[in-house]
């Protein structure tokens, strides 16, 4: 059983137009599809294949992830916004699941 849990780190406040760092991590085994089980049968691929971050309807970053991404995918990137609002984070799993998280920021 996968125990998938997303985590995000966004500063609570920023100045309008200031560039700041966002960090994200999601617990996920990222099964590459290259491995084999004890009986020599291939273990089917199961990865987080897509990540996106949006802010009030506008995109910050969208990422296509491949099996070469390590277990518990870690992604760090930068953003800049000119008003207060909420970041939405979305991870898509090969098994059809979608995991989301949200974080608000105050822009003064």
């Amino acid at each position: 059983m996968k125990d998938v849990k997303p985590r995000v780190k966004v500063p609570s406040e920023a100045k309008a137009g200031e560039v700041f760092t966002i960090k994200t991590l999601i617990s996920h085994p990222m099964i590459s599809g290259q491995g084999k089980d004890k009986d020599g049968k291939p273990i089917p691929r199961d990865i987080i294949n897509h990540f996106s971050c949006d802010f009030e309807g506008q995109n910050v970053i969208a990422i296509e992830l491949d099996p070469a991404i390590s277990a518990n995918p870690y992604i760090e990137f930068t953003a800049k916004v000119d008003k207060s609002g909420t970041f939405k984070f979305t991870w898509k799993d090969d098994d059809g699941s979608t995991y989301t998280d949200e974080k608000s920021i105050k822009v003064g």
């Binding site: 125990d3 849990k5 780190k9 960090k23 991590l25 617990s27 277990a71 870690y74």
Partner: peptide, 12 residues
């Protein structure tokens, strides 16, 4: 603690 993936499991 954010960069350390082990802390995600400690949080569980």
């Amino acid at each position: 603690d954010f960069d350390n993936p082990g802390m995600n499991f400690a949080q569980n």
